[in-house]
């Protein structure tokens, strides 16, 4: 929408103030996420910009909090930084590295499981013959809607009876429940734009169901599957309530440790972790954007 030449002065004013308001809202959205990155390089244990930082004095910036993140929990604190012994100590004993390993293994397990189950379900749901489709979709999506606290508490009551608490399996199962709806949504959406006559063409040319799935369906819905998997990964990686209820100290994930850190004594080391996570989400976002463009290209839509 550009401003028409015949616009009256008050229309011009309205047009520019709407723009200004939108820019302010967009800044409100991104600024908090971005402002913690410079703060994480603070040389002092404060949560605000020091005088030196505002003057861009190099002495006011440091990597001490990043070092803190890595070294917290190390057995031998005196090892020279970046030596082999230091690296192996960090890898084995650092608190944050331990939770990062947990986060990744739980998220990868939950992603694999929810992508597999979710994709199969979406393939079934997008067939015309599927009985009770709307009800089943509503049921499968409900884990996103039901408050996490209700789900987590219910799972805790049941898993406690089954001995599944304080155990990796319980958390992976819980995160699969939270992640699968996203896969169902994205793959169903990908299937909605899918031309069914391609399947019939494949059948006419003599392909069996497996070949049709691998050679025709899969390449076309792959962007949907991958973006669903990324959603599932992001959900699991970010999930903390189920971890609080179902996991022990040994199974703590990054968000769980941040939760504990913020509740007890918030130190700028949290900001360093948060900054690393922001970079990680920028990476995820870029992958999603590439996928979206690819999906548009496949469907023959080009950005205007």
């Amino acid at each position: 929408m550009s401003l028409p030449v015949y616009a009256r002065p008050w229309e011009r004013l309205w047009y520019y103030s709407l723009r200004a308001f939108c820019i302010i809202v967009l800044l409100f959205l991104v600024m908090p996420v971005l402002v913690i990155i410079p703060l994480s390089f603070n040389a002092e244990p404060y949560f605000t910009f020091t005088e030196g930082m505002l003057k861009l004095d190099p002495a006011a910036f440091s990597l001490r909090w990043y070092r803190d993140v890595l070294e917290n929990g190390m057995v031998n604190q005196d090892l020279p930084v970046a030596s082999w012994a230091w690296l192996s100590d960090v890898w084995q004993n650092s608190q944050w590295v331990h939770s990062a390993k947990n986060s990744f293994s739980i998220a990868i397990g939950a992603t694999l499981l929810s992508t597999l189950l979710g994709t199969l379900a979406a393939l079934g749901l997008s067939q015309e013959a599927m009985p009770a489709r709307r009800f089943i979709i509503a049921l499968l999506i409900s884990p996103i809607i039901v408050p996490v606290i209700v789900t987590s508490a219910s799972m805790f009551f049941l898993f406690a009876k089954l001995g599944l608490t304080n155990n990796y399996l319980g958390i992976v199962v819980a995160h699969t429940v939270f992640g699968a709806p996203f896969v169902v949504i994205t793959v169903t959406a990908a299937m909605a734009g899918f031309d069914r006559s391609l399947i019939r063409a494949g059948q006419m040319l003599g392909a069996g169901p497996l070949v049709i799935f691998l050679k025709i369906i899969m390449p076309l819905i792959l962007p949907g599957v991958i973006s669903g998997a990324l959603f599932a990964f992001g959900t699991s990686f970010d999930e903390v309530v189920a971890v609080i209820f179902l996991a022990d100290y040994e199974q703590r994930t990054i968000p769980r440790q941040m939760w504990a850190g913020i509740r007890e004594q918030i130190s700028p080391a949290i900001l360093a972790v948060a900054s690393i996570l922001v970079c990680f989400s920028i990476l995820l976002l870029m992958v999603m954007e590439v996928l979206r463009r690819r999906a548009e290209r496949i469907r023959g839509v080009t950005p205007a």
Binding site: L26, L29, V30, I270, L271, A274, M288, E289
Partner: peptide, 22 residues
Amino acid sequence: MILVLLPFWTSLLVRTTAWIVL
């Protein structure tokens, strides 16, 4: 849209931390 999606993809705890700091 990236400006809308970046916070959407950022960890809940990171955003909450950011608000505590701010």
